[in-house]
Amino acid sequence: MSTIEDTKNHEDDATRRDFLHIAATGMGAVGAAVAVWPFIDQMNPAADTLALASVEVDISAVEEGESILVKWRGKPVFIRHRTPTEIEEARLADDIGLPDVQFDEERVTAGKEQWLILVGVCTHLGCVPLGTKSGDDKGEFGGWFCPCHGSHYDTSGRIRKGPAPKNLSVPEYAFLSDTVLKIG
């Protein structure tokens, strides 16, 4: 039934049709892919959660030798005002072959060595070590002691004895002034 003209039209069509199809399908696919993003991104922390991502702490009331505990991102954070002896002890232990080698000066801010800021979660199985409150068992090295499986941390929060594999981690923080500390 087809005529010569028909066939010619048909060939012209083939290329234009292909282009149209590819353009339409491609654009549809891109659109669908982009539309997926809001549905994934909604699972990321919401604005109210992010607003609590950093806390500011007034540390003026923390006397030398004392520690306080603040809550940050749902976890405890230890803030310790170390005595010169504690700092010295920590520095002396720098190169005695620690399980997780790290120098004390890497774990504190230069010029503010007396302030030790740690995430208070034992690196073994996630318990909160003792040693912040005044009557607590500070462990064999005068730092912290995790009662769950007996991990001992020193005055730099480094693991010295027990099953924990890593040192207590140091959160991101900054001194906004001499007395205000911003964590996170």
Binding site: D13, A24, M27, G31
Partner: peptide
């Protein structure tokens, strides 16, 4: 704007296919 362009493309694509 995106949907309009896509819909116009689909329209011509449809016209071709339905020929």
């Amino acid at each position: 704007i995106f949907l309009s362009v896509l819909t116009i493309l689909l329209y011509f694509s449809m016209k071709k296919i339905w020929r």
